[in-house]
Computed example of a mutant assay.
Amino acid sequence: MTIYTVHHSTAYRYPRPVKLGQHQMLFRPRDSFDQRLLDCQLAIKPDPIEIRWIHDVFGNCLTLVDFNILAEDLEFETTIRLEHTPENAPDFRIEEYAREHPFAYDDNELPDLDPYIRRHYPADTAVPEWLSKFVPLGVNRPTGQLLMTLNEAIAEGFSYQRRTMRGTQTPAETIGLQRGTCRDFALLMMEAARSLGFAARFITGYVYVPDRDGPTRLGGGSTHAWCSIYVPGSGWVEFDPTNGIVGNRDLIRVGVARTPAQAIPLSGSYWGDAGDDASMEVTVNVKSEPIAEAEIASNAMP
């Protein structure tokens, strides 16, 4: 078990005062058996007139921030601290009927999984053509092995390239360019898995990078994205095709959604002229601290 502290700051600078509209934040981690939120702090400048917390359709915790002011600068700063229990290796305890692919999901689960199975780019032939290179049609394969192969194919076959432009590349664009960001790779794996009949969903959060750990707060950094695939008997299994990770090791889960557009860490609006586009500075730091044995004992389940 490890304790992570995540500091995330975003600053917008406008060329002249603009009227700030509502902003929406997705930064509070989802509590579960493998991660437990210990502390959560939020600072906003200028002061908002109201801050509300709601759960969205996926059960994510959203923060809605309203303003009634003209401003040239807008800053959001969040700090979260949580316990994290990593999975050292994938544990595919798969139901007998799903141990080999292809298989059909249970009728009781299918209505809930169906939105996550449907392809979002059904007319796109690039994904099936790319899959055919290492997943031959008409051949049964162990389900866990197939998913790990798909994860590795993206991690080893594509180059990561940070992009400041908003939005996510289509899977066809990522395949054509042979490069992308973590959001692009997550979407590619989701679409590939869906084309094989799996239920897949998008995850946004943070990744712990040991090389960036230490007493000094470093600049730069960013949020991270990966995906999860529903495997009968194992539930939602996390796959990070950017880093080739299977399971939750080094991954701090914040929000899940059906599409990347539904899991944006920070979004909002303002009223101004066409030339009032803001510059943006983002800093993300993830630090770790070993949890004391005494604290482990005190937090143990009875």
Rank of each mutant, 00 (worst) to 15 (best):
A294D: 13
D184A: 07
Y121K: 04
N108P: 00
L26P: 06
S9V: 08
P260Y: 03
P15N: 10
I117Q: 02
R99S: 13
P142V: 06
L110M: 13
I296V: 15
G138V: 09
L150T: 08
P210Y: 12
K287T: 15
R28N: 10
G180M: 11
L62S: 04
R162I: 06
D250T: 11
V127S: 08
L137A: 15
V256G: 02
L188Q: 06
V246T: 15
F103S: 01
E289P: 01
M301F: 13
A261G: 12
F134A: 11
R99D: 09
E75L: 12
H224S: 05
D34E: 10
A172K: 04
A71F: 11
R28G: 06
S279G: 08
E95G: 07
S298H: 15
V127W: 07
D34S: 15
P29L: 04
I229L: 03
N299L: 12
Q24D: 04
H120V: 00
T283G: 02
H224N: 06
L74V: 01
I264C: 10
A225K: 12
I3K: 15
S267R: 13
F103Q: 02
A274I: 12
F134Y: 15
H101N: 13
F92Y: 15
H8C: 06
L187T: 13
P102S: 05
D276W: 09
T216V: 14
N151I: 09
P122G: 08
R217Y: 07
S228M: 05
V18W: 02
A278R: 07
Y116E: 01
G275H: 14
G219E: 14
E156Y: 05
T259V: 02
G180L: 12
T283H: 12
N60W: 01
P232G: 03
K133M: 14
R93C: 11
T5N: 06
K19R: 14
N299E: 12
F198M: 01
G221N: 06
Q161C: 06
D250K: 07
E75P: 03
R28W: 00
F239N: 00
G235D: 02
W271Q: 11
G247H: 03
E75Q: 13
L177V: 06
E109T: 12
E50M: 08
A172D: 10
L177C: 02
I49G: 05
A155Q: 13
E152T: 11
E95N: 08
A261K: 13
Y105L: 12
Q35D: 05
A278M: 03
P46W: 14
A155F: 10
V284Y: 10
T174N: 01
D31T: 06
M148Q: 10
D124A: 03
W226F: 09
R212L: 15
G219T: 11
I291C: 10
V209K: 10
V284P: 03
I51G: 08
R81S: 15
Q22N: 02
Q145K: 14
G59W: 11
V135R: 07
G219K: 10
G244A: 05
A199R: 04
V282E: 07
N68F: 08
K45G: 01
L147D: 02
A294E: 12
H8Q: 06
G21H: 13
V231T: 03
G235N: 07
L147E: 04
H84L: 08
